[in-house]
Write a protein that binds this DNA or RNA. Sequence first.
DNA 1: TGTCATACTATGTCTGTCGTAGTATAATAA
DNA 2: TTATTATACTACGACAGACATAGTATGACA
Lengths: 107, 107
Amino acid sequence: MISSDVIRGYNDLIILSLLLDQASYGYDISRQIRTITEDRYIIKETTLYSSFNRLLNQGFIESFSGRSEQGRMRTYYRITEAGRSYYKEKCEEWTLTKDVINYFIKE
Amino acid sequence: MISSDVIRGYNDLIILSLLLDQASYGYDISRQIRTITEDRYIIKETTLYSSFNRLLNQGFIESFSGRSEQGRMRTYYRITEAGRSYYKEKCEEWTLTKDVINYFIKE
DNA sequence: TGTCATACTATGTCTGTCGTAGTATAATAA
DNA sequence: TTATTATACTACGACAGACATAGTATGACA
């Protein structure tokens, strides 16, 4: 398990990346992150929902109400065009950042 | 220029890495970061000194007074054994973190 | 005499993350 | 029938690293 403070500022990107192909909702995003990272990163619920709110306020995602297979109400999120642009920018920023930090890592 | 919030938590590692081979002081560390990253990352003075204080409190560096060639007083910092261990740990954490974030980056 | 590079310290703000806690529903187990 | 579990959230406050702003001080050099 990695410290999530390290990822600070990157949860938004992680969430956007999971919305690129299809709309989704909180619990599912959370599970996907666990699965994809093989439990190396588990996002906290509060972190997840505050991220959704930030992305909504910035217009990077939209929400709509839907129903689960069991008839349960839940909120789905869909990425916007602005969100896609933002995602691309953040990916480039990430590449730069990675290079910068790597300068200071000695095997 | 990359957003420094991204590097949050990694300034300590950057500073330690520059102390691995020899003791140094604030202004020099600052210049080294600029030079090594080719100005892609410029650490703020307040960030730098608060990092020094954190590392001192944790016993990862020690300070001593010295004189510049011009006779100017300044504070030098030297990495401790605990600091070297911490550096290694953080390097490993970084590798994990990098891998985790990379899962969510699409070219 | 003034400017510039150097070498710091003090103080308060911002923001993403997190701890704690609580609410509510549908499915499943006892 | 009752309790538990997984799902699906919201509210609130604390924490800590980064940063903005501001100020002090010295030696070199013009």
